[in-house]
Structure formats: C-alpha cells, structure tokens
Design a protein around this nucleic acid. Structure first.
Lengths: 227, 227
DNA sequence: TTCGGTCGCTTTGTCGACAATCGGAGTTTT
DNA sequence: AAAACTCCGATTGTCGACAAAGCGACCGAA
C-alpha cells in the first residue's frame, strides 16, 4: 500500500486514515455530505474522535467544512485540477532538480529498475492500467524521496498525492498515455544519472504539462458526453 | 491584519486561529508542549473544541502530535527551514510565472505603488524593520494572489506563510537585506509589467535563494553565540 | 397556485465525566 | 550505590448527553 500510516494508536487517526482512503478511492463521492453520527457508527466509535478526524482532513484540504452545516468531500472541478497540476509542476520540477544532486547512484539504478518493471507490465497487458497508474505515482514519489526534502515529500506524498489519486481513479481508464509517459520517465532518469538537475527539472515540468493536457482533454470529452 | 479569517462561528475555529497566531508570533515557543486543559481554560472553552483545533493545526503542520503524549509546537531547525525555502523557491517562482500572464495592468501598478511605500518607510526610518518584514510578505502574497491559482494562494498564504512568519519573528532584527531586497522586488515587478513570465520566475527564484543565504548565515552566527 | 410563516426533526457544537495510558518519585533489592 | 520495580499523579483518549442552529415539511393566507 502507498497509504502513509496504517497502524495508529488512536481511533481518531484510524478514522482519518479510513476516511482519506474512502475519499481518494471515490467510495465517498465528491461533494458528498459527511454525516458525523452515521460515520461514527460505521467505524464503531463515538462522534468525538470522528470530529477530530474531520478537522484533520480539513487541514489536509480533503474535506471542506462550513460552520453549522457539516463537512463535505472536496470537489475537484476543472479549475482546481488545473491549479493542482500547476503546483505539481513547480514542486516536482524542483524535486527533480534537487534529486539530481542528492540521490545516490544506487537509488537512481533502483528507479531505472522500477521503469523496467513498468515496461514489462505494459507489454504483458495493456489492460491493467490501474497498476501502471499507481506505478506512475510511485515513480514520482520516489523522486520526491530522492530529493531528501522532507517538506517536499510531505506535500507531494501526503496531501496533493491524495488529490492526485482521487483524480486518477476518475480518469484511469485511458491507457493512451502510458507509453509516451514511460519514455519521458526514462529521459528523466537519464538526466538524473548525468547529474543534470536543470535538465531533469525541465523534463519533469514538460512531463507534467503533458499529463495535464491529456487529462484536460479527457475532462472536455466527459463534459460533452454529459451535455 | 494578514491573518486569514478572524470571524468564525465555532469555538474550535476560534481556537485554531488564536493558537496559530500565538505560534507564529513566538508567544508559544518552538517545541513547547501544548497542554489541553490549560489552553482550554485560557480560551474559556471545553477540551473538545480545543482538541479539534489541535487536529486542524496538525493537518496544517504547525503542531506535531504523538499519541498519548500530547501536541508540541513544531521546531524550525536548520534543515526544516532549508527545505521550506526550497519549496518556497519552487512555488513562488511558479506564482511569478503565472502572475506575469494573469495579472491586470492595474494590479501590477498597485504592486509598484506598494514598493514605493516600502521605499519611503525604509528611507524614513531604518528602525521599523518589522514593518518592512511584514511588507515583504505582503509583496510576495500579492504576487501569489495575482497568479489566480487558489491552491498556490492557500499554500503560500495559509500554511508556509505561517512558518515563514515564525521564522521572521526570530530573525527580523537584521535590516541589512532590506535595500537589495527592494531592488530585486523592483526587477520582478518590471518583468511582470513586460509580461516576461520566464524572467519573473528566474528573478523570484534568485531573490528567495538570496534570502535563504542571508538567513542561513544568521543562523550560523546564532549557533556560534550559543556555543 | 404560490408565497410566507411556523413548527418539528435532524444534525452540529459543546460540555462534563470516566477510562486508559504515560512519566516520575519513591522505595526496595542486589 | 545503582538498577529495577511499584505506585501515584497528571494528561490524554473516549464516550454520552445536552443545547443550539439549520433545514424541510406542512399549513394557511393572498
């Protein structure tokens, strides 16, 4: 699992975890109202810990609260996603630049091996797109780790990552972009291996821009279907 | 005030607000233990709302909790600050790039006027460094606003901004950097006026790198004094 | 029919009390 | 005297109940 912290002592942390997972997997729909009593009973706990969990998620921006009206799952509209990808571009670009200077040769080799694995998965079966999707996130997260910057890891790992996964679950049906994406990943790894931080940043930025274009088109298509 | 939302209906939100302010102003020292009962009484509320506030702050990363051991104010050690400035460089650089395309001419003119005001303040009195400090933050935040990217605004405004202010309150005593900083600000505004996003991003990045070098040196000095 | 008001239910916000856990002081044992 | 054990106080985690606010339905009047 890529989920941050499975084992937690307190009920509140446990609820935080379960809710976050339910939200990113879409089990809880976007904009859905979160009833305290109902969720508390579902998780087998009192309303106190659950409320604390909601407050924690509020801080993480996974839910939005309005006083006296309860909490709702955030909605990822087009503008929000666009903003998210812009932030990602900045953050992951920087992560790449730093990683080029900080990662060990072994870590870079591991990254390359990860891509080999992805390639095999794609060759073997185009169907299992989901796995590639999670794999893609894994690749990006490994680079964040490689930067050694804890704050970058937190931001990309714990927060936006979740929003990202939400988005993936909605749009993971298209496999078109997996192969060009893999090539771009390879280019990035090569830049890292050459310790060319500047180029690595540039490539990652382009990669993310491309991903956004792809997602953006898909949203357009979806909206047309609805209309 | 630059504080986000003063008027809130619920006690919990109020506590969140007061605590955040107390933390960034240093009224609550870094690493200080936060006693629930004591704070609850100080704020004139029960422990429930206060606990929710702590959870919210935990999500904002202003406090760190360990199960069964309570919450403590985060400590900004050298590594954390370094990481923070790296993230800032990425985020504010991107904000500049986007702002160059999104801000109206009027907004850019306002920005320029803001710098005029700062210049007068500096010329009139070198002593009131704090005001310039807040003014500097104001400048940066206005650019974030100008990007029109809500997520950038949230991240730079609500979260790290707070950490930044914490840092400022610790290191606001040196006025050395105010004048070169102002010049760099002017260059950035000029790039924005020319709609040169690329240059604006580059300048902002350098500006923040310079700020970090300045702060870093100061920390070194402080550490030597202690030793 | 439609608009406005009132009533009641549901849900949220808050509090106080109880149980569980942790840290430390004091004491005992080797 | 040092180490470990035990007990106690303090603090956190959790629950249930009460108060308040919001939302919707129902009813009445224009």
């Amino acid at each position: 699992m890529l989920i941050p912290h499975p084992p937690s002592a307190t009920l509140s942390d446990l609820a935080t975890h379960k809710l976050a997972q339910s939200i990113v997997t879409g089990e809880l729909a976007q904009g859905q109202k979160l009833n305290e009593a109902e969720l508390a009973e579902r998780f087998g706990m009192g309303r106190g810990p659950l409320r604390e969990a909601l407050r924690h998620l509020e801080g993480m921006r996974l839910v939005k609260r309005t006083p006296n009206a309860g909490a709702r799952v955030v909605v990822l509209d087009r503008k929000t996603l666009s903003d998210l990808y812009t932030v990602r571009e900045a953050l992951e670009g920087m992560a790449c630049r730093v990683a080029a200077a900080q990662m060990t040769d072994d870590e870079i080799a591991d990254l390359s091996a990860l891509l080999d694995k992805h390639e095999k998965q794609i060759a073997k079966q185009g169907g299992k797109v989901y796995a590639q999707s999670e794999g893609d996130l894994d690749f990006h997260f490994q680079i964040a780790r490689g930067s050694g910057n804890q704050m970058l890891m937190d931001m990309l790992g714990s927060e936006q990552y979740q929003l990202l996964r939400m988005c993936r679950y909605r749009t993971s049906r298209n496999a078109q972009r997996t192969k060009p994406a893999l090539n771009q990943h390879r280019q990035i790894v090569e830049a890292l291996a050459n310790r060319d931080g500047e180029l690595a940043e540039l490539l990652m930025r382009r990669h993310i821009q491309g991903a956004w274009r792809s997602i953006s088109e898909m949203i357009d298509k979806e909206e047309k279907e609805v209309a």
